[in-house]
Lab assay of single mutants.
Amino acid sequence: GPGLTDLFKTEKAAVKKMAKAIMADPSKADDVYQKWADKGYTLTQLSDFLKSKTRGKYDRVYNGYMTYR
């Protein structure tokens, strides 16, 4: 089956995709945050998933999740 690194890459891609969806349409934020909360994502995990070469690119999404939880 898929190894943990593959799983991480898949999760990371999914999280980034959802983060971009929030940035494009902030009204989606609560739905996405709820999904992440259901998956039990911690802020540390989210921070790892949303690492970007562009500093602060996903800060709004991260901060939103922090206040959501």
Rank of each mutant, 00 (worst) to 15 (best):
G1A: 12
G1K: 10
G1F: 10
G1Y: 11
G1H: 12
P2E: 12
P2N: 13
P2R: 07
P2K: 09
P2G: 13
G3C: 15
L4G: 12
L4H: 13
T5L: 12
T5K: 14
D6T: 07
D6I: 08
D6C: 15
D6F: 04
D6G: 06
L7M: 12
L7D: 15
L7I: 12
L7V: 11
L7S: 15
L7Y: 14
F8I: 10
F8N: 07
F8G: 08
F8V: 09
K9E: 11
K9D: 11
K9R: 10
K9F: 07
T10C: 15
T10D: 11
T10Q: 14
E11I: 06
E11P: 03
E11W: 05
K12I: 06
K12P: 03
K12L: 05
K12M: 14
A13F: 06
A14C: 15
A14Q: 13
A14G: 05
A14M: 14
V15N: 02
V15A: 05
V15T: 03
K16I: 15
K16S: 04
K16M: 09
K16P: 01
K16H: 05
K17D: 05
M18C: 10
M18Y: 06
A19D: 00
A19W: 02
A19M: 03
K20M: 10
A21Y: 09
I22P: 00
I22K: 01
I22R: 00
I22Q: 00
I22F: 01
M23S: 03
M23Y: 03
M23A: 03
M23C: 05
A24T: 09
D25N: 10
D25G: 02
D25H: 05
P26H: 06
P26L: 06
S27W: 07
S27D: 08
S27G: 07
S27R: 11
S27F: 05
K28M: 13
K28G: 06
K28I: 15
K28A: 08
A29N: 02
A29P: 01
A29I: 02
A29Q: 06
A29H: 03
D30A: 13
D30I: 12
D31V: 11
V32H: 04
V32R: 01
Y33E: 00
Q34G: 10
Q34N: 06
K35S: 12
K35W: 08
K35M: 15
K35N: 10
W36Q: 00
A37S: 11
A37H: 15
A37K: 08
A37W: 15
D38A: 13
D38P: 00
D38N: 11
K39F: 07
K39M: 13
K39P: 01
G40V: 01
Y41I: 11
Y41F: 06
T42M: 03
T42W: 02
T42D: 05
L43M: 10
L43R: 04
T44E: 12
T44R: 14
T44G: 10
T44P: 09
Q45I: 09
Q45W: 03
Q45L: 08
L46K: 00
L46C: 02
L46R: 00
L46T: 02
S47R: 15
S47Y: 12
S47N: 10
S47G: 09
D48N: 14
D48S: 15
D48K: 15
D48V: 15
D48F: 15
D48T: 15
D48R: 15
D48W: 15
F49W: 13
L50N: 00
L50T: 02
L50V: 02
L50G: 01
K51M: 10
K51S: 11
K51R: 11
S52Q: 05
S52A: 05
S52P: 06
S52C: 09
K53M: 06
K53G: 12
T54L: 07
T54F: 08
T54N: 09
T54K: 12
R55K: 14
R55C: 13
R55Q: 14
R55D: 10
G56A: 05
G56S: 06
G56P: 04
G56D: 08
G56L: 04
G56H: 09
G56Y: 06
K57D: 05
K57E: 09
K57I: 07
K57F: 10
K57C: 04
Y58A: 01
Y58V: 02
Y58T: 01
Y58H: 02
D59H: 07
D59V: 08
D59R: 12
D59M: 08
D59F: 08
R60V: 14
R60G: 12
R60A: 14
R60Q: 14
R60T: 13
V61T: 02
V61P: 02
Y62I: 15
N63H: 13
N63G: 06
N63S: 10
N63E: 13
N63R: 14
G64D: 06
Y65W: 03
Y65L: 00
M66R: 12
M66K: 14
M66N: 07
M66P: 02
T67G: 07
Y68M: 03
Y68E: 01
Y68V: 02
R69F: 09
R69L: 15
R69K: 12
